[in-house]
């Protein structure tokens, strides 16, 4: 479904991604783990078109997308739930959700997706008229995920959805991710919380300083002594 082939990305002179090779197949949850600064967020931003690879190719369903503007990549079926949530704090919950469906003209479909988001996160339905900036951290993360779902993606990019949240909320979020997969959603999940990510994922990549250091099934990586030592606390 998604293939990154030898992708190089720079911030000015900083060589942030040094030839990433990665693939995500239909129906999989693929985890991208690695320490702070490894290049996980950069990888997702490049897939979404906010950053451009200086070298390499990104294809989605066989079409090259590495030259497309971000809004067209969304229209092709990739949604991005960004690091730090980045919901629109001055807009209402409803406006955040409506905005993410801006390019869709199938009104009944949008309505169905809205109801689906409210079913996944009932608290958002209660708070639909509220200004998003007044939500709690956990609610904001739910809104960020719900918002990403409103474009009806086939591939969902999640950047550290558990960051800074209380354990109960983290559990809820991970349950939702599992239920999305059960509905057939394909997910690329970036997590520092490697333990939980590997529990949930089918396969995983370990990123180190802009390169793929290890890859394999989530089960094999969870057993890998190097991964255990570096990311799973021994």
């Amino acid at each position: 479904m998604l293939v990154l082939d030898n992708v190089h990305v720079y911030y000015g002179h900083i060589h942030a991604l040094k030839g990433i090779n990665l693939r995500v197949d239909v129906g999989e949850i693929v985890a991208l783990i690695g320490s702070n600064g490894a290049g996980k967020t950069t990888t997702l931003l490049t897939i979404s078109g906010l950053l451009r690879p200086r070298q390499g190719r990104i294809t989605f369903d066989g079409h090259a997308i590495d030259h497309l503007p971000p809004h067209q990549i969304v229209r092709m079926g990739i949604a991005h739930c960004p690091e730090g949530r980045q919901i629109f704090t001055r807009l209402s919950v409803m406006e955040n959700l409506r905005l993410a469906a801006i390019h869709r003209h199938d009104v009944p479909g949008v309505q169905r997706d809205l109801e689906r988001v409210f079913a996944l996160f009932p608290i958002l339905a209660q708070r639909r008229r509220q200004i998003a900036g007044t939500l709690s951290g956990g609610e904001q993360q739910m809104l960020a995920i719900g918002r990403a779902l409103m474009s009806r993606p086939r591939l969902l990019l999640l950047d550290e959805p558990s960051l800074g949240l209380a354990p109960l909320v983290v559990e809820h979020i991970f349950r939702v991710i599992a239920s999305l997969r059960a509905e057939g959603m394909t997910i690329l999940l970036v997590e520092q919380n490697a333990y939980q990510a590997l529990q949930l994922a089918d396969r995983a990549y370990v990123l180190e300083t802009g390169q793929v250091a290890l890859q394999g099934t989530a089960r094999a990586l969870a057993e890998n002594p190097a991964v255990k030592a570096a990311y799973l606390g021994g």
């Binding site: 078109g49 906010l50 503007p69 971000p70 809004h71 969304v74 980045q86 993410a100 474009s151």
Partner: peptide, 9 residues
């Protein structure tokens, strides 16, 4: 940037 990620042209 977030607006772009949400599909806004």
């Amino acid at each position: 940037r977030a607006a772009q990620l949400m599909g806004v042209d």
